[in-house]
């Protein structure tokens, strides 16, 4: 039974992974990724990692895939990906083949004789009765408390950072100093656009009301700037 589960899910995950890499459509790739992520918890379960299997399912299969799809939607320029250069792909194949070989060799060289340990009956009983969650919780909140806290801070920072980076841009507008701009002008408000404006027009992008003539006539400024770009 275990063997059957392993071979079925292994075949699914490998085929799906190949689909992720080689399917022409990025959306299909994302769906293949969902398949990979969904089959991997099976391996976790085979290794007595029930909590991790659930976490994997939630984080990767649901969260990650959806985030990926959102990313695809945001960069909605082309859904179809162009064919990669043949040359590039060839070299990559060679490289990957060599690398896989190296890894296999490494595995063969180092781990031919694993000292496989059979767990004690008490442990098996605990696992069968309560699952690994309690043990894992004890480990995380006792031995690995500090790394766990750091990981949570990392998540927080990543979240804030992602928001900052992905936000439109940090200008007067975002700080509430300026009225919303049109979507066409949106590009001009990025850092590069500001720099370009600064160097080409000899004045900074930010306009001080009352001093800058353009700032006194806001609507006209918009049109002018759009025209310039």
């Amino acid at each position: 039974m275990e063997n059957l589960i392993f071979w079925v899910f292994a075949a699914v995950s490998v085929l799906a992974a190949i689909g992720v890499v080689f399917h022409r459509s990025i959306v299909y790739s994302a769906l293949f990724l969902l398949a990979v992520f969904s089959s991997i918890p099976a391996f976790f379960l085979l290794n007595n990692a029930d909590f991790l299997a659930i976490a994997q399912m939630v984080v990767y299969a649901v969260g990650m895939t959806i985030v990926m799809l959102f990313g695809i939607m945001f960069t909605r320029e082309k859904f179809m990906e162009e064919e990669p250069g043949r040359r590039q792909r060839f070299y990559a194949f060679v490289l990957i083949a060599g690398f896989s070989l190296a890894l296999l060799l490494a595995a063969g060289a180092f781990y031919t004789q694993y000292q496989v340990v059979t767990p004690g009956s008490a442990f098996i009983a605990t696992i069968q009765q309560d699952g690994s969650t309690g043990l894992l919780g004890a480990l995380i909140f006792q031995k690995y408390l500090l790394p766990f806290e750091i990981a949570s801070v990392l998540l927080l920072v990543a979240m804030v950072g992602a928001i900052i980076i992905a936000k439109k841009s940090f200008t007067e507008e975002s700080a509430g100093l300026k009225y919303p701009v049109s979507e066409k002008e949106y590009i001009n408000e990025t850092a590069e656009g500001m720099l370009k404006e600064y160097y080409e027009m000899g004045r900074p992008g930010s306009k001080i009301p009352g001093v800058d003539k353009a700032a006194d006539e806001p609507e006209k400024t918009d049109n002018e700037m759009a025209g310039v770009q």
Binding site: Q88, Y91, L95, G98, F99, A102, L105, A106, A109
Partner: peptide, 24 residues
Amino acid sequence: VQVYLGALFFSVFILSLAFIYWLR
């Protein structure tokens, strides 16, 4: 980026070969 990454993995490949050869 991909060229850099290729160089990185190529060197890892070389290193792992050396690792196998020397540490077995």
